[in-house]
Design a protein around this nucleic acid. Sequence first.
DNA 1: TCAGTTGTAAGCATAAATATTACAACTGAC
DNA 2: GTCAGTTGTAATATTTATGCTTACAACTGA
Lengths: 148, 148
Amino acid sequence: MMQISSRFTLAVHIFACIDTFGNEYKVTSDFLSKSTNVNPVIIRKILGQLKGAGLLKVTRGAGGAAAARPLHEITFLDIYRAVECIEGGELFHFHENPNPACPVGMNIHFILDDKLLRIQNAMEKELASITLADLKKDTEKYLNQETM
Amino acid sequence: MMQISSRFTLAVHIFACIDTFGNEYKVTSDFLSKSTNVNPVIIRKILGQLKGAGLLKVTRGAGGAAAARPLHEITFLDIYRAVECIEGGELFHFHENPNPACPVGMNIHFILDDKLLRIQNAMEKELASITLADLKKDTEKYLNQETM
DNA sequence: TCAGTTGTAAGCATAAATATTACAACTGAC
DNA sequence: GTCAGTTGTAATATTTATGCTTACAACTGA
């Protein structure tokens, strides 16, 4: 399988909750746990990662999370990088010890690395093109459909 | 972490070996095991996936693998899809049971799915733009550097 | 002071990847 | 026809990451 972990969609879900409920309610890990149906400790860990990346603020003691920057200045790429703690940020996992005595084995990184990077860049460029302002707009769209 | 599994880079490595050694040697799972330093049973499993996708032919009994189509008609996307057996082909893993009683939880898929798809499409488009002909060209480039 | 909350550690359960052993079935050369 | 070499596949083990859960110290605002 090997998909991008659900921490990413969880993090986006968290921001959608902050957008939607932030003014009315205190958005705590317990609140988010109920909306996502994910354990509050996991939520707190993700909140910590997002906080560490400067994307949101978490109020210790009193509780509650809020965005740390204007929404159009937070991209999906920021979120992806905050929660997807990949060594060196590399999307593709390589087999570890290709044979240095084989002409192909010894050169496989020279042959492949630039191509893999191109692919990863294409994905990250698209991630960077989506902001939390877009998310909020669409969230409101669907929530209003409910109300009607 | 959650990277794309090394089966993909392994599969590309396999094709690089076929390109380079296919005329001179019989490219068996044992041969490939030595070049990649990966267990021959794993190699055979990947060979089976590539064969199943119609990308190469494996000679039973006698042994050996070879490309099943002209190299410029095999893309990295073909290989990716052959070996990355993701349910529904989705790059992003979603938290399973968002709360249907929460306005955000009940709509999170409507809000997010199109955006995730855009990101995945960007990546797959780049995967599709690289063919095994490109791979062979670069492989020869680096191997010739060795010889000089 | 105290109820509610965050941050974090520790242990467990689950899932996927990869390694490994084993062996039946197959093929081509002799 | 035999046989060495190979593929296909099953079964098991190991490793690694994820996510769940319990627990609790530290913190904050009322």
